[in-house]
Design a protein around this nucleic acid. Structure first.
Lengths: 134, 134
DNA sequence: CTTGCTCCTCTAGTCACTAGAGAATGTAGG
DNA sequence: CCTACATTCTCTAGTGACTAGAGGAGCAAG
């Protein structure tokens, strides 16, 4: 017998707020769970996994529609790996470019702090750095 | 004599859509530009730079309020060095944590791609990797 | 002059949540 | 068993940062 999980328990175990879970259900990202006699949602271990997956994918910056696609592919994984691979590769490019530009900005702010500690801000180049990066 | 730039030209040069430019003006991120006799907005080269900066900062995930502060910080570099230093250090922390998180995410995605070497469908572990990463 | 592009303002819609009201149901202490 | 409080329910509305569309006016080219 598998134990029932309330929406609150699911929330804390997956690290996703209760209203967000209901929102995911509303948009069809999570299936409608069975309910108790008194109309409360009951989940199982699989729901925790699915929701954890969604949370991590969101943290990675994947959009809901992409996650929806990945979940669909995961449900029948024949021939789906290449597609997921492509999705991930596309996102990796975005992440790399962000890291690059952030690092440039970091150096510039560090430079500002250094000149500030010497009692003068000769020239603020923050805007320049971000205006025409790379 | 500096040449006038229409909102459409500014849009394509900065890579920011026309309604977004008007939105930025509305929330005070861009100053209200002068207008032609027929009420059309006219910008200059400096507007292009400022807007480019905003676009890149947004792409890096900075919130509008943070960008507003950074612009202010860049505008008055001469006085109150201590305050500028504090602001800069604060921003540096944010930038550092952002780089850190992005780098972690990058490794996760790279791990996903490695686990998902094409042609070996049985070995696709992307969903698993994202469900319980680390 | 007329066709079509750009611009104006305004309202409303989008995404991915987030917050709050008000009611019912579940749980723990006394 | 009663009471107090927590959790859940549905519903509506708000957020940030845009985005799209209506309806109208100006401008430039053929």
């Amino acid at each position: 017998m598998k134990k029932d999980i309330s929406i609150g328990a699911l929330s804390s175990r997956a690290g996703v707020k209760v209203p967000t879970i209901r929102y995911y259900e509303e948009i069809g990202l999570l299936p409608e769970p069975t309910r108790t006699e008194s109309n409360r949602r009951i989940y199982d271990e699989q729901s925790v996994d699915r929701l954890c997956f969604i949370r991590h994918a969101r943290e990675l910056g994947f959009e809901i529609e992409t996650i929806r696609e990945m979940l669909a592919l995961a449900d029948k994984p024949q021939r789906s790996c290449a597609r997921v691979d492509a999705l991930a590769r596309g996102h990796l490019k975005v992440i790399d470019s962000r890291i690059e530009r952030l690092t440039a900005l970091k150096h510039e702010v560090e430079g500002m702090i250094r000149s500030c500690s010497r009692g003068r801000i000769a020239e603020c180049r923050i805007i320049e750095v971000l205006t025409h990066p790379g």
